[in-house]
């Protein structure tokens, strides 16, 4: 990869990751939920694989780590769903119940468990796509 692209990517990684994280943290106030934010972070991670080469990225985030984070986020999602069912709010004992305090409208810390679920989904999606791309890029055709 030419040096110009590497330098530009150095500058651009920070803002784009911040933008992606912003979308999935403020997912309950803005259009765009964990899924969209996760895809933006995934696209920047895939850009890093393309620009810096697979070996560099293997040292920082290996495929095993990515799969681990992705699957753990999904498992924590399901565990939070079951915690809601254990009955922290007495009249609603359902899966994925909204049991954290709901602050006032349109503040950041409002809306129960929804921001936490957004963050978990964002991590899961981002590292999932990264793992898929890392798998595809280390495929060698058998000549």
């Amino acid at each position: 990869m030419p040096r110009v692209i590497k330098i530009l990517t150095n500058y651009v990684i920070g803002p784009i990751i911040t933008f992606g994280v912003y979308i999935f943290i403020f997912g309950h106030l803005l259009p765009g939920e964990g899924f969209d934010g996760g895809m933006i972070v995934a696209s920047i991670l895939i850009l890093c694989i393309i620009v810096y080469g697979k070996d560099e990225m293997e040292k920082r985030i290996s495929v095993n780590t990515a799969v681990l984070i992705s699957v753990l986020s999904a498992i924590i999602f399901i565990i939070i769903g079951f915690v809601g069912m254990a009955g922290l709010r007495m009249e609603h004992k359902y899966f994925l119940d909204n049991f954290l305090p709901q602050g006032s409208f349109s503040h950041l810390f409002s809306g129960g468990i929804v921001p936490i679920l957004n963050i978990l989904v964002g991590f899961s999606v981002a590292f999932g796509f990264y793992a898929i791309f890392a798998y595809l890029s280390e495929y060698k055709t058998e000549e």
Binding site: G84, H92, Y94, F95, L96, D97, N98
Partner: peptide
């Protein structure tokens, strides 16, 4: 012959 409905999150 009846139905069961489960609402997620209440």
């Amino acid at each position: 012959g009846g139905q069961m409905v489960y609402h997620f999150g209440g």
